[in-house]
Amino acid sequence: MSKILTIKDLKLSFDTEEGTVEALDGVDLEVEEGHFHGLIGETGCGKTITGMTIIGLLDSNARIDRGEVNFRGRNLLKLTEKQFQRDIRGKEVAMVFQDPASSLDPVFNIRDQMIEAVRLSRKDSWESYEKTVKELLKQVNLPDIDTLLDKYPHQLSGGMRQRVMIAMMLGRDPSMLIADEPTTALDVSVQAQFLKVLVDLKKTTNLTVLYITHNLAVLTEICEEVSVMYAGRVVETASIRDVFHKPSHPYTYKLVHSILKADSLLDVLEEIPGAVPRLINPPSGCRFHPRCDEAVSECSKTIPPLKEIGTNHSVACLRR
């Protein structure tokens, strides 16, 4: 077992007009090579920013304060923009975004956009590029590939666009794919179709996937491990089994039970009192303590470190 990605104590903030937003406050994350690793949390907890850091596409007002992002032993935070573009993006790490409607360029057809990716990795003939593109599209179960190639993004459904995105991102055979809520914008029936594509990939390739979502149920289908994020920190990492059967952090516990108990979606929304804190002036100590039933006075003073409590199971809580 080797770790393809190790994030250590990553602290990142954004300078905004309202003040400094401490978006990530000591994120620790380890991803096993060839595994599907879920990253779950509420909106605004820093999941997407974590992904953007790995692929080096942070906005220009982002500031990395400390930490390491080791990818195959190389600290990505030390790379220049040029090195990132040449060595990492697309080639080692690819990314699929949340909204398939806006992530393909509207003025180029599918063939153009796919070949553009494929030919970055090798110099070859156009026929050979096109052959590769067709194979990639077949891999994601897209029908009518010959006519599909000449189509423009607006002529495809959301589910098809998202599968084209995956195929395009796999075009350079990366070791890792970051999927940032790829099914959130899709209909439920199409979601299943999309997840099947990922499950098939899992069987046939050695691709590592960091699957970012706020929907725990989706993860059960595809992931080996799950990390739970809350307000800029990873509060618990465990196997998908342990997350459901032995959730340790109070936040994870509530998250899991909100799904298991819920009769309707409304119940899920009501389950955890309060809201994700604003990160301009985050709570001191454990950032979850204002919403936590088990909080003691110590929780507002000390930041709990992520500590191991079992095999591949770690949690950041003072009371565990």
Partner: peptide, 14 residues
Amino acid sequence: QDYIKAAKAKGLKY
């Protein structure tokens, strides 16, 4: 736009 991010994510030069 997202498609610019996606184009960068493919590894294209800026």
